[in-house]
């Protein structure tokens, strides 16, 4: 069944359709929440709140709009609420990069997702990248994750964050510069 039809049935109050909709999107929502809050323990609670909010807000959803953007907007806002409520930022582990690791991030290999053959090296690089991203404030991190991992376009991001395309570009530019600064710092420390 197509998403639109499923959503239409949810709007009619069909609980089975809503359950199906949750099953289809739960993994993506889990992934996004984890990327923003960086706490395994709280992901389930936040995801539950996201889907509960989604259920109650579905009657207002227009079928011609993007469901993913709608769902991600709820998830991102819920993560921000959670972080504000807890008044704590996710734990930051500073990364120290070797020349080899720095060369990997600066090469085209990292973008094309070609990974080093050595599994332990691969895991090390993943962990370092994770630590670099963890050093960013949640708003900047979530924007970069939505752009580069979830592959949302500038236009879709503008719709998720309810702002203009130029504002999104500016925020992205700041987030990228911040990440670069963290990266440079890690390189120097090593």
């Amino acid at each position: 069944m197509a998403d639109a039809e499923l959503i239409h049935r949810c709007q009619q109050g069909d609980h089975a359709a809503f359950e199906e909709l949750v099953k289809r999107s739960e993994r993506r929502v889990y992934g996004l929440i984890y990327q923003i809050v960086r706490s395994t323990n709280d992901v389930e609670d936040i995801a539950q709140e996201v889907f509960t909010k989604l259920f109650f807000s579905l009657p207002q959803f227009r079928l011609d709009a993007s469901f993913d953007a709608w769902l991600y907007r709820i998830a991102v806002n819920q993560c921000y609420d959670y972080l504000r409520r807890r008044k704590r930022n996710p734990q930051v582990t500073q990364a120290d990069l070797s020349e080899e690791e720095a060369a990997f991030f600066e090469s085209d290999e990292s973008v094309t997702l070609a990974r080093p053959a050595d599994i332990s090296k691969r895991m090390e690089i993943k962990q370092l990248a994770e630590n670099l991203l963890s050093a960013l404030p949640p708003k900047e991190r979530s924007l970069l994750i939505l752009k580069e991992i979830e592959q949302f376009s500038i236009e879709e991001l503008a719709s998720i964050f309810k702002t203009s395309k130029s504002a999104i570009k500016l925020r992205l530019f700041r987030a990228r510069n911040h990440l670069k600064a963290v990266y440079e710092k890690s390189k120097k420390r090593k």
């Binding site: 609980h15 809503f18 359950e19 199906e20 949750v22 099953k23 739960e26 993994r27 889990y30 992934g31 929440i33 984890y34 990327q35 395994t40 992901v43 389930e44 995801a47 539950q48 889907f51 509960t52 259920f55 109650f56 990997f104 991030f105 600066e106 090469s107 290999e109 990292s110 973008v111 997702l113 990974r115 691969r122 690089i125 993943k126 962990q127 370092l128 990248a129 994770e130 670099l132 991203l133 970069l144 994750i145 752009k147 580069e148 991992i149 987030a175 990228r176 990440l179 670069k180 990266y183």
Partner: peptide, 29 residues
Amino acid sequence: LTQGITAASKGIAPPFPAPGFSRQVLQAV
């Protein structure tokens, strides 16, 4: 550069939803 870093972090597996998660959501609703 920033695409490289975010792409490299992609492999970190986020926690998995428990099998009865959707039921749990319906109960909360």
